[in-house]
Amino acid sequence: MRIGRHTFEYQNRPEVIETSAIAGPQEMDGPFKNYFKYYLTDDTFGQDTFEKAEREMMVFVIKNVLEKSKLNSADVDVFIGGDLLNQIISTSYAIRQFSIPYLGIYSACATYVEAMLIAAAMVDSGFRKNAICCTSSHFSSAERQYRFPLELGTMRTPGSQWTVSGSGACLISKSKEKKYPYLKYATIGRVVDYGIEDTNNMGAAMAPACADTIYHHFKETGLTLSDYDKIVTGDLGILGSNILIDLLAEKGYDIGGMHMDCGAEIYTHKPRLHQGGSGAAASALVFNCFLFDKLLKGEYRRILFVATGALLSPTATFQGDSIPGIAHSVAIHAPNY
């Protein structure tokens, strides 16, 4: 149901039934290690290129989520996913062996929430019964896509973030028991660009878009901060998170105590990685392994899950353009709330 220009409300409890994720070796050392069930010891995943490794991670989580939810690929009506590589090849190549109707989407690191938002809308309306959302990213393939060859001796600047290696998939459907976390609201963000040109400071480029989406969510739904236990952002990093808190404080929302950033949290064990993680997999990993678990147990009652994306491309950057930011959000409630 339409609530405002950005926000709508799901009417029929589309639920996140099952999730699966696979983490890279570096993510496995981090604070979420007890939550990750599957991980890579070698980030080539037995493949000869990093692009193929990223694709294999996706194949793994798709198979895993089907297995866990006891479904065949024939039971799935739609697969929505994307990744960071040109022409979203990881997703398109990973899905070709499953013969599931497929929508490829791209919002950089906001792709996971965008996929959930669309999938839940399709399930909610009854157009689709079972929908799978999936994203992936891989440090080594993203590095080549956006930056330099891996062996080039460059120094990372203090504003930089590190692309998370991993992939996550979830199944969105409606259950009879109504015992799974469900999606309540979705807010579609708009592109916001404050003219940040520094590709090593993506947090600052994305934070205004994130603040914009969160602001519209609260303004249009009329909810207050106390309606949520956590506001979870995708991959703003430490600096981006601080900017977000400042920007929202200016609008009268003090989220400091209830905010968590997936990218900033995932690498707290490695301060050398500066601002933390980024990439389409950052939010997917943390949601699938950590947040989903907390919601299922009712430890978090309601969360606002906002993933942010920096919609840059090296071509646009070399042509001197700034970095447009995007953020989409979904409000996810625990089964009994």
């Binding site: 203090p158 404050y194 400071n201 601080n242 900017i243």
Partner: peptide, 13 residues
């Protein structure tokens, strides 16, 4: 103003 603000809170090399 935003760029200036970001510049001010950027971690320094």
């Amino acid at each position: 103003a935003y760029k200036e603000y970001v510049h001010n809170i950027m971690p320094r090399t």
